[in-house]
Design a protein around this nucleic acid. Structure first.
Length: 727
RNA sequence: GGGUGUAUAGCUCAGUGGUAGAGCGUUUCGUUCACAUCGAAAAGGUCUCUGGUUCGAAUCCAGAUACACCCACCA
C-alpha cells in the first residue's frame, strides 16, 4: 500500500474507470444483489430522446441516484429503471427545426419516411443520453432500459386504450379544441398558456330585420362575425326583453340570425348582448348546443378563413380582423372601441394564438363514473390521495393536485402530428348497415389492422391519422415498464417506492400516472412523490438557450467532476422550491472533493504500518467515536425523511470542519509524538470508512476511488463501496 | 376571479417554542508539517410590519404589505 497519491484529485482520471467497476460488478441490478431485503424501486422520469441532457436532468439524476445508492447500501433490493421518451410533439418540433435549417419540412417526405427519419434521430439521441447518464454516475439497471415506443410498451398502451374504450371512458367527439395554427395540431388544456393582453373591445351595430334602431354588440373578435349564428341576451335583462325572438342581421354578410336568451350572458358586460359563434368560442358552443343552433366554422386548419367568411376569405386572423373593421367602419356599424385587458391563450411552444377549433378528436372522460363502483378516474385519484396512499413531498402540493383533479375536464388525446403512437382506430368507409352507421364506423383494434368492418363487412377501412398525446403513454410508465420486463418485476416492484420529478409536470404527468395506474392495476403507481424545484441561474432566471444562461452539465463534469456537480444540486435544494446554481457553488464543492481526497490521502499514508487489530482507545477517542455515532444516526434520519439537502450539508460540515480541521489535526500531533499512535489511527480509519459510506450516495466517484485505494483493508464482502453496508 | 407559496447576513438559502446558522463573498493574519482547490481569526442581521397565544415567538395563530408562481371559457 505504498502507492503515492497525487496532491490534487483529478476526477477525469478516475470517473470512467470507477463506473466500469460498478457496471461489471452487477450491482446496478436487483437480480445480482444477494440481498433479501425489501424492494425499493424508482422509475426514472424518461428524458426526451430529442436533445442532450440539461441541468434539470442532472438534478433528478443526483436525487434519484442518491436515494438508490442509500437504499442499496442499506441492503434493500433496489431497482432504478431507466428509459427515454419519444416525446411526440416536442420531438417533432425539434426535428422540424433541424429540417428547416436544411431548407426542408416534414412535407418534403412521406409520412413513413418522416417517421423513419425521426426514429433514427431519437435512437442516436438515446445513445447520447445513456452515455450522459453514466457520466453523471447514474447507477440504474441498464438491462431493463425502456423506450416509450418499444413494441411491448406500445402493446400495453394500446390495451389500456381498448379497456378505456370498452368502459366508455374514451370517446370520439366533435368538440372545440385548442388548436395551434402554426403547428396545425390540437392540444389538451394543459398545453395552453394564458397571458394577459390589452385588446380592444369593439361595439358594433347589428341591424334588426324589422326595426332600423338595431342592437349594439360588444366583441373583441369582429373577424368571427361570419361565424355568428345568433345574438343572445340574459333572460332577466329588462332592456332587451322585447327583442328576444326577433331577427338581426350580421353586419358583414347581412345574414339573418335570431336573437335568443340564455342565462350565461352577463348583463353587465359590454352592452349585455353576446354574439354567438359556436365554432370559435367555448361558451358560444355550449349555448349553441342547447338552443339547437347551427355551427358555422369559418376558419380552416391552416389558420386562414374559408369561403364562408365572404370578404375575409383567405386571410389569417389578424389581417381578417383589420379587414372586418374596415368594412364595419365604412358601413357605419362600428360605434366605438375601448381598451380591454384580458387573458388570451397561446401555444406553449411557439406562442401562436390558440384558436378554439371544431374538430373530431379522441377524449378521455376523466369525470365519467364507470364499472361496478361507479367512480371516475378523477375520483380514484382523489380517493387515493385522501387515504394517504400516496404521500406528496412537499405536502402542500397535495392540495394543488386535489384542486386540479376536482376541476378536471375531459382530456384531448388526439394530436395531428405523425411522430408518436398512432391511434389504434379504423373507420369503415362503407357504413353499409344501420348498425355500422350507429357506431360511426369506428373500429378499435389494438393488435392488428382489421381486414373488414365487423359491423357491415365493408372492406374500405381507413386508420385514424392522428397519434396519441405523449402523456397518454408516459402516464402509464410505472406499470408499463415493469410489465414489459421480467414477469416478476411488476409483482416485486409495483407500486414503486418513490416518484421523483419536477413540480412543473405534476398535472401533465404525475396526475395522469395516478389515474391510469389506479385504473389499470387497481393500485397506486408509487407511494411517495418527491417534487424537486426547477434550476435557476444566480439571477433567479429560468435557464434557456435563448437567454444564453444555460449550464451544460457535461461541461461542468468535465471541469469539476460529477461529484461536485451532484453535491451542488443537492445541497440547498428543498423540495418544491426552485434552486439557484452558479459556477462558484460548484467550485466550492469541487474543493470539498479535494478535501476528502487529501484527508484520505493523509490517513492512507499513515496507515501503512498499522495492523487492523483494534487497539486500546483513550477516553478522548471514545468520546470522539461516541459523538460520531450520534452524527451517523442524524444522517440516517435525515435521509429516511427525504431531507437530502440537510444530510448533505451536515456531512459536508462534519467532514471538513470537525473531522479534517479538528480530529485529524489533533491526531496528527499524537501520531508525530507517538502518543497512543495506534489508537489515533484506528479512530481516523473508522471515521473515514464510515464517512466514505455516508458520502457515497452524494459523491459516488471520489468516495469509491478512495475506497479502492483502501481495498486491502476491507473485508471480502466490502470490496466495492457501492455494495458495502450502510454504517 | 380562484388557489399556492415566499419575506432571516452583501448574495444563495437552512433552521428550531429557549443565547440568530451555513456556503459563497468581504477584511486581517499565516505557507518546510494531507490539502492555497489550504489554515487561523474578524466584520456583518430590529429574522418584512402590526397584533395575539406563551414564563419565553424569528419559530405557532390572525391581519397587513410586498413579491413570486399556478389554475380559470366573461364575450
Amino acid at each position: 500500500m505504498t502507492r503515492k497519491l497525487p496532491k490534487v484529485y483529478e476526477p477525469q482520471k478516475f470517473e470512467k474507470k470507477i463506473y466500469r467497476i460498478w457496471e461489471k460488478s452487477g450491482g446496478f441490478s436487483p437480480d445480482q444483489l444477494k440481498s433479501k431485503g425489501r424492494p425499493f424501486s424508482l422509475i426514472m422520469p424518461p428524458p426526451n430522446a430529442n436533445d442532450p441532457l440539461h441541468l434539470g436532468h442532472a438534478v433528478f439524476v443526483s436525487l434519484e441516484d442518491l436515494m438508490i445508492r442509500y437504499h442499496r447500501l442499506k441492503g434493500e433490493k433496489t431497482l432504478w429503471l431507466p428509459g427515454t421518451d419519444h416525446a411526440g410533439f416536442e420531438t417533432q418540433v425539434v426535428f422540424e427545426k433541424k429540417l428547416a435549417q436544411e431548407g426542408k419540412s416534414r412535407f418534403s417526405f412521406s409520412r413513413e419516411e418522416f417517421y423513419r427519419l425521426v426514429w433514427d434521430y431519437t435512437q442516436k439521441n438515446r445513445k447520447i443520453v445513456r452515455e450522459q447518464l453514466k457520466t453523471l454516475g447514474a447507477s440504474c439497471d441498464w438491462s431493463r432500459e425502456k423506450f416509450t415506443l418499444d413494441p411491448e410498451i406500445v402493446k400495453i398502451v394500446y390495451e389500456t386504450f381498448e379497456r378505456l374504450w370498452q368502459d366508455g371512458l374514451i370517446y370520439r367527439g366533435q368538440r372545440l379544441v385548442n388548436y395551434c395554427p402554426k403547428h396545425q395540431t390540437a392540444f389538451s388544456d394543459l398545453e395552453v398558456k394564458y397571458e394577459q393582453e390589452t385588446a380592444k373591445l369593439y361595439y358594433l351595430r347589428y341591424d334588426l330585420k324589422d326595426d332600423s334602431e338595431g342592437i349594439i354588440v360588444a366583441t373583441t373578435r369582429p373577424e368571427t362575425i361570419p361565424g355568428d349564428v345568433a345574438l343572445a341576451v340574459n333572460p332577466h335583462d329588462q332592456r332587451y326583453l322585447a327583442l328576444v325572438g326577433k331577427i338581426a342581421k350580421d353586419p358583414l354578410l347581412g345574414r339573418e340570425i335570431p336573437i335568443i336568451s340564455d342565462k350565461r350572458v352577463k348583463i353587465d358586460f359590454g352592452t349585455g348582448v353576446l354574439k354567438i359563434t359556436p365554432a370559435h368560442d367555448q361558451t358560444d358552443f355550449e349555448i349553441g348546443l342547447e338552443h339547437y343552433l347551427p355551427i358555422r366554422a369559418t376558419l380552416a386548419k391552416d389558420g386562414r378563413f374559408n369561403e364562408l367568411a365572404g370578404p375575409l376569405f383567405g386571410l389569417k386572423v389578424p389581417e381578417a380582423r383589420e379587414k372586418a373593421l374596415a368594412i364595419l367602419k365604412e358601413k357605419g356599424a362600428l360605434i366605438k372601441e375601448e381598451e380591454y385587458l384580458h387573458e388570451v391563450g397561446h401555444c406553449y411552444k411557439c406562442g401562436s394564438l390558440i384558436e378554439p377549433m371544431l374538430m373530431d378528436q379522441w377524449f378521455v372522460a376523466t369525470n365519467k363514473p364507470f364499472g361496478s363502483q361507479q367512480k371516475s378516474l378523477a375520483n380514484l385519484a382523489l380517493e387515493a390521495l385522501k387515504k394517504q396512499e400516496i404521500k406528496i413531498i412537499p405536502s402542500n402540493y397535495q392540495k394543488v393536485l386535489e384542486h386540479w383533479l376536482n376541476n378536471l375536464k375531459d382530456w384531448n388525446i388526439s394530436r395531428q402530428i405523425s411522430w408518436g403512437i398512432r391511434i389504434p382506430v379504423w373507420y369503415c368507409q362503407d357504413q353499409a348497415t344501420e348498425v355500422c352507421r350507429q357506431k360511426q364506423g369506428i373500429i378499435v383494434s389494438v393488435s392488428r389492422k382489421p381486414t373488414k368492418c365487423p359491423y357491415c363487412g365493408g372492406k374500405h377501412l381507413e386508420q385514424d391519422p392522428d397519434v396519441l398525446d405523449t402523456w397518454f403513454s408516459s402516464g402509464q410508465w410505472p406499470y408499463a415498464t415493469l410489465m414489459a420486463n421480467q414477469p416478476q418485476d411488476f409483482k416485486t416492484f409495483y407500486p414503486t417506492s418513490v416518484m421523483e420529478t419536477g413540480w412543473d409536470i405534476l398535472f401533465f404527468w404525475v396526475a395522469r400516472m395516478i389515474m391510469l395506474g389506479l385504473y389499470r392495476t387497481g393500485k397506486v403507481p408509487f407511494r411517495v412523490v418527491y417534487l424537486h424545484g426547477l434550476v435557476r441561474d444566480k439571477d433567479r432566471q429560468k435557464m434557456s438557450k435563448s437567454k444564453g444562461n444555460v449550464i451544460d452539465p457535461l461541461a461542468v463534469v468535465q471541469t469539476y467532476g460529477a461529484d461536485a456537480l451532484r453535491l451542488a444540486l443537492i445541497i440547498g435544494n428543498t423540495p418544491g422550491r426552485d434552486l439557484v446554481i452558479s459556477e462558484e457553488k460548484i467550485k466550492g464543492y469541487r474543493n470539498f472533493t479535494n478535501k476528502i481526497w487529501n484527508a484520505s490521502r493523509f490517513i492512507l499514508m499513515n496507515l501503512e504500518e498499522t495492523s487492523s487489530k483494534k487497539p486500546k482507545l483513550t477516553r478522548r477517542d471514545q468520546k470522539i467515536l461516541k459523538d460520531f455515532g450520534k452524527f451517523k444516526k442524524k444522517i440516517t434520519a435525515y435521509l429516511d425523511n427525504y431531507r437530502f439537502s440537510l444530510a448533505g450539508e451536515a456531512l459536508y460540515h462534519y467532514f471538513w470542519h470537525t473531522f479534517a480541521d479538528k480530529i485529524i489535526e489533533e491526531m496528527k500531533i499524537r501520531i508525530r509524538e507517538n502518543d497512543h499512535q495506534e489508537a489515533a489511527l484506528y479512530v481516523l480509519e473508522t471515521i473515514l470508512n464510515d464517512c466514505l459510506k455516508m458520502l457515497h450516495p452524494f459523491m459516488p466517484f471520489v468516495t469509491e476511488t478512495i475506497w479502492q485505494q483502501l481495498k486491502e483493508r476491507h473485508s471480502s464482502k466490502e470490496q466495492i463501496l457501492m455494495t458495502s453496508q450502510w454504517p
